[in-house]
């Protein structure tokens, strides 16, 4: 079963192609990152999933069903632009939003108290929304997206505007929700959050998917054939050009590129005899690098065209 399927989805606004031929297929129980530079089409994609914008072409299925009312109650949504009823008290507001998701008042009361406590907002329960700071309002909104324990949680830029402590809190809650069995889609351009959270990603640029799949696999594919080493001793093997093609001495580590017909294993075997190794790992590019590399590569291609 797929929790969410996008099948060759297109959307343009006037002459701007916001989303072009985007296909996704999400299994349940994962955290999925929708990445891309500003204006790439992340929010448009999320809004189409939420049935706020209608795609020009293509199909969107949630839990193998076309958008339906029943399904809406199974989804929690945090829009990019936050808004609350300013004149309503936080407690009443959350009760209302929970009721909109068909949660019985008796049930929602307990959960609201729990989450307000968790997000350190208990003292604000009887305050009006307009009295809260932006960060607090965002936390209230985050509570409203998970209060009904939805199967699918869609968060548009959940971390913008949060301080590091609250970011950490939101991240932990996201992981808990995944533990519970929920699928989470979130859009962001903050790559370090993605590395810590995501199982799968889709990188979109100018409306097109440029990179997608399991995060592990993507990183493997982008693995450069180099080793990061930290050691003590005289590393004579580094100048042996039959073994090492080239190396770079950095402040606290050395990056080593094996010669053409040598493997990482060969290097380890030699090195272990000559120096005291404290760290030896295959260099993986950070997602940040992958992001920049992929996006700028596209740009260069376009220019050369």
């Amino acid at each position: 079963m797929s929790i969410l399927t996008l099948d060759h989805v297109y959307k343009s606004f006037n002459s701007v192609h916001a989303v072009q031929d985007l296909s996704l297929d999400l299994p349940p129980g994962i955290i999925f990152g929708l990445l891309g530079p500003n204006g790439a089409g992340k929010t448009t994609t999320i809004r189409m999933i939420m049935d706020i914008i209608i795609p020009d072409k293509g199909k969107i299925l949630i839990m193998d069903e076309l958008n339906s009312q029943k399904m809406r109650d199974q989804v929690g949504y945090l829009p990019e632009e936050r808004g609350l009823y300013r004149k309503m008290k936080i407690g009443e507001l959350l009760t209302f939003l929970a009721e909109m998701k068909e949660l019985k008042p008796a049930q929602s009361k307990k959960r609201i108290d729990y989450w307000l406590e968790r997000f350190e907002l208990s003292d604000w329960k009887d305050k009006k929304a307009e009295e809260l700071s932006r960060g607090m309002q965002q936390k209230v909104q985050f509570i409203s997206t998970i209060i009904h324990e939805p199967n699918l949680i869609i968060l548009d830029e959940p971390f913008t505007g949060l301080d590091p402590i609250n970011s950490e809190l939101v991240k932990n809650v996201m992981l808990e929700q995944k533990e519970r069995g929920a699928t989470i889609i979130f859009s962001t351009h903050l790559m370090d959050q993605v590395e810590k959270l995501c199982d799968s990603i889709c990188l979109i640029n100018e409306g097109k998917s440029v990179l997608s799949g399991e995060l592990k696999r993507i990183k493997k594919n982008f693995r450069r054939n180099s080793i990061r080493m930290e050691f003590n001793g005289d590393a004579k093997f580094l100048i042996d050009t039959t073994l090492v093609q080239k190396f770079k001495q950095n402040d606290d580590y050395t990056e080593v590129y094996p010669a053409e017909n040598k493997s990482i294993q060969n290097i380890l075997q030699v090195a272990i005899k000559e120096v005291e190794i404290s760290k030896f790992e295959v260099m993986e590019p950070s997602l940040h690098e992958i992001f920049i590399e992929t996006v700028t590569k596209k740009k260069k291609e376009q220019i050369s065209e």
Binding site: M50, I52, Q69, R72, D73, V75, G76, Y77, P79, E81, R82, G83, L84, Y85, R86, L97, M100, K101, Q141, S144
Partner: peptide, 13 residues
């Protein structure tokens, strides 16, 4: 204009 509509409409038609 306060974008509350977007939240409400994630729950109803």
């Amino acid at each position: 204009l306060s974008r509350v509509a977007e939240i409400i409409l994630s729950s109803c038609k």
